[in-house]
Write a protein that binds this DNA or RNA. Structure first.
Lengths: 138, 138
DNA sequence: TTCTAGAGTTAGAATAATTCTAAACGTAGA
DNA sequence: TCTACGTTTAGAATTATTCTAACTCTAGAA
């Protein structure tokens, strides 16, 4: 269900360039990690991974990089009710989420599997809907 | 659209008692403020109000009180994508939200005005759905 | 009414997530 | 190569929230 987009560093570099982001080593590595390996990581989980796998990277760079990638539209930043941490999602298509309340783990739900209809007061103009289904995975 | 439940301190006290929460002056005042006056306030906004309107109240009491009220089921704590602050909602019925992305202001959407249907993977059992419609109020 | 235990409140310190700052570094283009 | 500017860095600062330990209040017992 969760799409895994495993790309080579060269392809990642391409993506960064296309998005107008200078492809530095740190950005390539972090972006690749989130695309290929991580599952809805927090900034701190990315930092942990980066400290193990890249030589010498500062916390600020991790935050800067994540912020840059989100601004460039390459990642989505999510904030969910169960945690005060921002979660980064490599799935930038419109989609929704399922939160396993037991494990705290987040799963993507494809846009087409969720249908929402709503009635808004006059003058309210919607441009996006986010759905979080909460429950358990057995 | 937003329900305003304006109750007297005595009625508030009753509600606290019913919920098994000892109705102290601070709790009555804060709960009443949120029920009657505040609109989806943050802890900090409640603290600001409390410092002006109650004599001598500590920040810790504001947080404790809000936590107690949420635990007792008298308030709902919300966390939304646009802010890192917890928002307190006196509407404890199932309902959804509309976020005005310009002002950051939150509006309640009655449960019956939003309909969600979804298809989950096997073994996923839902027990609640939260919808946030984002857009503008003209 | 007084006493007491437990709950509530307090100031201030502590924690956790994130952002800022200013200096040092790297890199693409002149 | 040189320069300018964007990137990274360490560490400090900020912000939201929680913890701690002492103090206070209050409901019920005596």
């Amino acid at each position: 269900m969760t799409k895994r987009l495993c790309l080579s560093p060269a392809e990642i570099e391409q993506k960064l360039n296309d998005a107008g982001v200078q492809p530095t080593l740190q950005r390539i590595a972090i972006f690749r990690h989130i695309l290929c390996e991580a599952d809805h990581p927090t900034a701190d989980q990315v930092r942990e991974w980066a400290e193990k796998n890249l030589d010498k990277i500062s916390q600020a760079t991790v935050y800067n990089t994540l912020g840059t990638l989100v601004e460039a539209g390459l990642l989505q930043a999510l904030r969910l009710p169960h945690s005060d941490k921002v979660i980064y999602d490599h799935n930038i298509e419109d989609h929704h989420h399922f939160l396993d309340e037991k494990s705290g783990r987040l799963y993507d739900l494809p846009e087409e599997d969720v249908e929402v209809t709503y009635k808004l007061p006059k003058k309210f103009r919607a441009h996006r809907v986010d759905v979080v289904v909460k429950g358990r995975v057995e």
